[in-house]
Amino acid sequence: MSASYRGGEPVAEIVRSGFAESLHRGSVAVTDPSGNLVASIGDTGSAVFPRSSNKPMQAVAMLRAGWEPGTSADLAIASASHRGEAFHLAQVASVLGSAGIGEDRLQCPADLPSDPDARTAVIADGGATRRVYMNCSGKHAGMLAACVAGGWDLATYRDPEHPYQRLVIATVEELTGDPVQAIGIDGCGAPVLAVTLAGLARAFARLVEAPAGSPERRVADAMRANPKLIDGTRGPDHRMMTAVPGLLAKGGAEGVHVIAAPGVGAVAVKIDDGAGRASTPVALRAITQISGLEIPHESKPEIDALLWPEVHGGDQPVGRLRTLL
């Protein structure tokens, strides 16, 4: 029986017109560059589902299976939670095409793009939901490409007992230093693996500190070289990685966010109520205030906007989310 996540401590509040109207509780794990836990808030030793923060580790397994992406952008989209913008769709098509696979092989749910402009354009053109629009289609395309490289069955690639998924489990356990404590079904239908927050932070520290050319470093480098592919034009991961050279960031559903930087370490955050609005500010606060990440002077306005997001009343800012770290 796995140890269930027990919950965290107050980590953020919403202040509207000078009045604190909401409180977010959560947990934060902070590691040094070697992956050693150096600070923690809340429950960092019980298992959580990292959701899409698992994707970089799943991409490492793709490379270990023998997949050779045509470009770093192909590897980035396989690690992404994309928004269905045109350049995202083109990159997913690139992964599928280079492996000789059609869109019909994707087993993620059909969806509309999550980017508002892209979704509006599809609807205006009378378009319908498609699997490629779903934010995990890049990951599913990479999984299929890995199966082609490994000579494995394509129809069952989501099965936890499939050779590729067994390789993912081994990879996650190696990078996190944790045993996988539970296997669930993610929103996209692929397996999601439960590990501790401390292990999740440790894995990201290992990604950015890995030797150049290793599968771990290749994934980290691809994501950092193509940040707009990771979560779209408006995405916080894109904005953070663009603003701070060397930073690696990947969010996940249900209030998970992980950030790492070479020579600094990594932080992993889980917000108890699953609210994504708190996970990014708390993770940024932890890596700057606890880990000591220095923000370039020219990037401070962008980082501050992510660190202290505004609360609006009507069409005017009337407050902010305030971290409590």
Rank of each mutant, 00 (worst) to 15 (best):
A249I: 01
L200Q: 15
L175W: 06
D74Y: 05
L307W: 10
G66D: 10
A73E: 12
A203M: 11
I123S: 06
G126C: 11
L306Q: 05
R320P: 00
T196F: 01
I169K: 14
E216P: 01
E21T: 11
V60H: 09
R285D: 14
Q181S: 12
H238E: 02
S40M: 15
A146G: 01
S34E: 12
A99T: 00
V195Q: 12
V15A: 00
S53I: 08
G252E: 08
D159G: 11
L207P: 11
P309Y: 01
E209C: 05
A155S: 13
L193K: 03
Y5K: 14
T129N: 07
D117S: 12
P215Y: 06
M1R: 14
V269M: 01
C147P: 08
P236N: 11
M57H: 07
P211L: 08
V168M: 15
I287G: 03
A212S: 11
P116N: 01
L89I: 09
A190I: 09
L247Q: 01
V122Y: 10
G8I: 02
E13V: 15
L247M: 12
A205Q: 04
M57F: 13
S17A: 13
V318R: 04
I230L: 15
G313N: 09
S94K: 05
L207M: 08
A86Q: 03
T44V: 15
A194W: 02
C136F: 06
A210N: 01
A260R: 04
M62L: 10
P113Y: 14
G246T: 03
A155P: 01
L154T: 05
S52G: 12
S53T: 14
L167P: 00
R285W: 03
T288C: 13
A268L: 03
N36D: 12
E13H: 10
D115E: 06
M241K: 10
E103W: 05
R51D: 06
P191G: 14
A146N: 05
P163I: 08
R202F: 07
M223G: 04
A73W: 02
W152F: 15
A205K: 08
S114F: 11
A222L: 04
D237H: 02
T120F: 13
